[in-house]
């Protein structure tokens, strides 16, 4: 059984950006960004992913990672 890990916190640390600042830039609430960061989100919209990539100056592959639990 695998899962998708969201590495937003890693990219935020690299860009030295706080959660509230990023939330404001991509126009979502800090609570929703926190859900995304902690991996509780069920899905992510393309528009959110696009905004994250734009503000964090990265590619989707830098934010999302597939983890296979069986490995």
């Amino acid at each position: 059984m695998g899962r998708i890990m969201v590495n937003v916190d890693v990219m935020m640390a690299k860009r030295k950006m706080s959660l509230s600042e990023l939330a404001e830039r991509i126009d979502i609430t800090p609570a929703n960004l926190s859900i995304l960061k902690t991996g509780k989100a069920r899905a992510i919209r393309f528009s959110t992913l696009e905004a994250l990539c734009r503000e964090l100056r990265c590619q989707p592959k830098d934010l999302l990672e597939y983890i296979n639990d069986e490995d």
Binding site: I35, L36, A41, R42, A43, I44, R45, T48
Partner: peptide, 8 residues
């Protein structure tokens, strides 16, 4: 609704 709420 839960699915919708957890779609960011």
């Amino acid at each position: 609704q839960e699915e919708q709420d957890l779609t960011i």
